[in-house]
Design a protein around this nucleic acid. Sequence first.
DNA 1: ACAGATAATGAGCATATGCTCAATAAAAAA
DNA 2: TTTTTTATTGAGCATATGCTCATTATCTGT
Lengths: 236, 236
Amino acid sequence: MAITKKKAPRRTAKKQSAPARKRVRLAPTDRSDQILKGAISFFAKHGFGGQTRELAVELGISKGLLYRYFPSKDDLIDRIYDEMFVRRWKPEWDAILVDRSVPLLARLKRFYLDYAQMLHDYEWVRIYLYSGLDGASIAQRFAKLVTERIYKPIIGELRHEFGLPGLDKQPMTEPETELMWALHGGLFYIGIRKWVYRVNTPRDVAGTVTRAVERIYADAQELMRADQIRRRSPSP
Amino acid sequence: MAITKKKAPRRTAKKQSAPARKRVRLAPTDRSDQILKGAISFFAKHGFGGQTRELAVELGISKGLLYRYFPSKDDLIDRIYDEMFVRRWKPEWDAILVDRSVPLLARLKRFYLDYAQMLHDYEWVRIYLYSGLDGASIAQRFAKLVTERIYKPIIGELRHEFGLPGLDKQPMTEPETELMWALHGGLFYIGIRKWVYRVNTPRDVAGTVTRAVERIYADAQELMRADQIRRRSPSP
DNA sequence: ACAGATAATGAGCATATGCTCAATAAAAAA
DNA sequence: TTTTTTATTGAGCATATGCTCATTATCTGT
C-alpha cells in the first residue's frame, strides 16, 4: 500500500557499508531460477506493488543482480505469469477428460482431484487474483482456456453420456456453461477462503471436491434429461 | 504497479501555475461524501496502491483538500471498508431467512436474488478482493459474518424443513458448511468473472442464481435424508 | 600461481508519492 | 460594504522506488 512510515532520518553517513556479506556465485540458470521462485513467493504475498528492493533482501542478493537476469520488474512479472499459467497446465488433462475407457464420473473425479491441487497453492491462487485485478491479459486468456479445454470437453462427454447431440450439432447452452462455472467457482472459492480470507476450510478437501463433482454430474443429468424431453416433444 | 515511466524532465519553471480553476465551496459533509464515493470507485479500479494525487485529479480537487477530510490514506481506506462491509449489510436479510410464513425455497430465492445484487457492483467485488489480499481484518470478519448470519440460519431452516435436529442439538457439519460455501463461491465467481477476468457472464443472472439456489436446496435435501437414515439405524 | 572472464555488489540517479502548511478566496456575519 | 470565518489551493518536503553502472570478488583455464 506504500504508506509512508515515519522512519529514522536519512542516513547522512559517508560510506558505512554493511559487514560485506560473502558473495555466492551461481550459474546463471540457477540464479535465474532462484530469483523467479523467490519473486513468485514474494509477489504472491505482497502483490505486484511489492518493491524489488525488498525482494532482493528476501532473496539475499543485491538489487543489481535482480536486474541482471530480469531487465525490468515488468519482465519479471511476465515470466511469473508464464510460469504460473502456461507451464502449470498439464497436457495429460486434456486426455483424461475424453478417455472413454474410464466411466465419465470417475474421469471427472480424477481430473478435478488433480486440478484442485492448485487450490492448495498459496502462490497460484493469489497471483491468479492479483493478475486478474491488474487486468493482465494472460489472466483473461487463462479463464478462456479453461472454457475451451475443460468445460467444452466435459459438456461434450456429459451430452454423450446422457444421449444429447454433440457440441458440433448444438453449441454449449448457458445453463450448461453456468453449471461448469458454478463448479469451478465453488472450488476456487476454497482457495480464496484459505489464502485470501483465511477462514476455515474443509478438513477433507478431497471429499469436498468429490462431492462437488458428484453434484454437478447429477445436476447435469437432470438438466439434460429435461432437455431431452423438450427435444422429443416440439414446443407449441 | 508503479513502474517508472520515462517522462519529461522535472519542471524547472518558477511558478507557472495552471489557469487557476474556479473554486467550488461545499459543505464539509457533502465534500466528505463526494471524496469517499470517488475514492471507492478509484481504489476499486486501481487497488489501494493507487495514488492520492491521481484520486484528487479524478475528483477535481486539490490533494490538500483530501487530507483535510481524511487525515491519511489509511484513514480513508478504513472508511471505505466501513462503507462497503458494514453499512451495506441489510438488516432485513436476517428476518427474511427465518420467516416461516414463507416457504423455505421461496425465502432462499428471495434472499439470494437480493444478496447477489452485490455481484453486479464493480466496486464491491473488487474492493472485497483487494481488502482480503491486503489482509484487512475487516474482510476476514465479513467472511465470518456471512457464516454466522447466513449459513447458520439457512442450515437451521433446512434442518427444520427436512426433519433433522436443530443447530442447538447438533452443530453444523462440514458437508453442510461446504454446501453453503459452494453456493456462495459459485455466485461470487460470477462477480469475479465479470469484474476481474472479464469473461462472459450469464445473460440471465437471476435465472442462474435461482437455479443455483434450487440446486443447493435439492442437494441439502439429499444430504439430510442420508443423515436421517443414518440417524435411525445407529452405526455398528 | 596467474590472468581472463564474468557473477555480484551497492552507491547513486531520477522520478514517484504521502502529506504539510502558508496563502487565497468564497461564503457568512456584522 | 466590511469583517470574519473557513473551505480550498498548490508549492514543497521527506521518503520511497525502479533501475544503472563502476567496482569487486569468485571461478576457470593454463
